[in-house]
């Protein structure tokens, strides 16, 4: 049985929970995996550090919370500071390069910086930062397929912004493929 635990983190309003919902839906509905998503519901989740957790498995998920996250996506300094310590050796750390200043180079983990804000601004709005990061995560982790992620978007982003969210996703996805030296088929859309 293969199980992957992912923590999505940032600050309230960045669309962190949305990232986990999109990924969970993609896995559970279109990638034929079991996915269980939980989120921080404490008062501390309002406006400051915000986190959503996703457990992905080939079999039914029994324990719904994280025990040993293999992937951490941090889109804010506070989120990075709070959670990077829980990554094990070989874990994947994805940070937004403008928003997070990393402490050291983390030789034991796979540190990947994504210029999500810059790409989002190129598309006209910082609000798409989360989708760029999500495309990047899809490319570098291989946990979920790009196809499933795009199928999951309708209903989770407003209809009138669907196309531009897909563009944002593709930007991040292509950047992730390039960065990890994977073949870019040129047809991420």
């Amino acid at each position: 049985m293969s199980t992957t635990e992912i923590r999505f983190s940032g600050f309230g309003g960045q669309g962190i929970i949305r990232c986990a919902l999109i990924t969970g839906k993609a896995l559970a509905l279109y990638d034929d995996k079991f996915a269980t998503m939980t989120q921080s519901f404490g008062p501390e989740a309002r406006g400051s550090a915000c986190s959503a957790q996703l457990v992905v498995s080939d079999e039914r998920v029994l324990y719904p919370y994280l025990t040993q996250p293999g992937v951490l996506m941090a889109l804010s300094q506070e989120a990075y500071d709070k959670y990077y310590g829980e990554l094990p050796k070989g874990g994947i750390l994805i940070v937004e390069e403008q928003l997070v200043k990393v402490r050291g180079e983390h030789p034991d983990i796979r540190l990947l910086r994504v210029p999500a804000t810059r790409y989002a601004e190129e598309l006209g709005n910082r609000l798409f930062t989360n989708l760029v990061a999500l495309g990047f995560l899809t490319a570098v982790t291989g946990v979920v397929t790009a196809d499933a992620m795009k199928k999951a978007l309708p209903g989770l982003v407003p209809d009138r912004f669907l196309k531009i969210n897909i563009k944002a996703f593709d930007k991040g996805y292509e950047h992730g493929l390039k960065m990890t030296g994977q073949n870019n088929g040129g047809d991420a859309s």
């Binding site: 559970a28 996915a35 269980t36 998503m37 939980t38 989120q39 998920v61 719904p64």
Partner: peptide, 10 residues
């Protein structure tokens, strides 16, 4: 319970 109530699954 809160866990099942707030947990997302298929």
């Amino acid at each position: 319970d809160e866990t099942v109530g707030h947990m997302h699954e298929k």
